[in-house]
Amino acid sequence: MNERYSRQTLFSPIGEGGQVKIKQKHVLLLGAGALGSANAEALTRAGVGKLTIVDRDYVETSNLQRQQLYTEQDVEEKLPKAEAAKRHLHAINHEVEVKAVIMDATAQTLEPLLGHVDLIMDATDNFETRMIINDLSQKLQIPWIYGACVGSVGMTMTILPGQTPCLHCLLKTIPIQGMTCDTGGIISPAVIMVVAHQIAEALKILVEDWESVRPSLVTFDLWRNQYQTVRLTKVKKKDCLSCGDQRTYPFLTLENATKTAVLCGRDTVQVRPPKPLKLQLEKLAKDLNGSGYLVKVNPFLLSCEKNGERMVVFQDGRALVHGTKDMVHAKAMYQSILG
């Protein structure tokens, strides 16, 4: 018996046999922010065989309030999150093979990483990327675990291809103008409550205890003392384009992705959503105002500024991010505001 995992193997649904299985598995974790760092730490402590962490961001001061693993030193060094996470994880459990991938996750960049992956953990901050995960999960038959949080609220759901409904069955269109952590704030209990559910589901999947996998969506609000599970028995749609009979995996096509382009000579990146939106600019302005942005709005566009960066958002969802030529950064900023 490995002393390190003794309390985990004592838990009878895992046992010695389960621990061996956990050790043989490869988990891909998408995102190394709040949900990502906490998920990474728990999976590493639990002794997963291999962990691939994908993230496009670096560590900033405002992350420290809720993102595990990271220290003030990481902020000072402006380390990419995936790399900083990898270093801390190695100090926690050198037995786990951690691979840090610093990149913007798109359908095209993600798919090559998914060979021999047993489970995808969602720790992203937007529905566009989740819909890509959802399509890849169906295409490659890899389970994934949706998790999301904002304020004191969170939500999670486990998707087993060929068995449960998929996220596309639930969300016919990608919801827009949800609250994001950049507009609604976030407290750490909401993060770790989601992670508690995600890791419990992950362990069930890794030890192949399929019967115990939660069949419902969970939603909660820790400040308002709410918790609800929602059964999903009627949700699976035969004509779902992601998991149905005539599936096309629509979110793997370039036309359904957010586009970015550097505008020559202007130090500006244009960000364009896959389909024109109809934003409620006044509402967006109110949210951004509350969150420290300097905002101007008229019926056609909204201009917001913070920390020397300026973004102009048009009613159809198109945006110009000024003061940068970095397309990944511009897209991240866009999604941090529009969700």
Binding site: G33, D122, C149
Partner: peptide, 28 residues
């Protein structure tokens, strides 16, 4: 959710049903 079961816009309601409205969450 109608009676703790996910429901779409076309679901017909009856007296005594409990309808929960749950905003989707995208942060992380």
């Amino acid at each position: 959710a109608v009676n703790e079961e996910f429901a779409d816009d076309e679901t017909i309601l009856s007296d005594g049903d409990t309808v929960a409205f749950i905003p989707p969450v995208s942060g992380g």
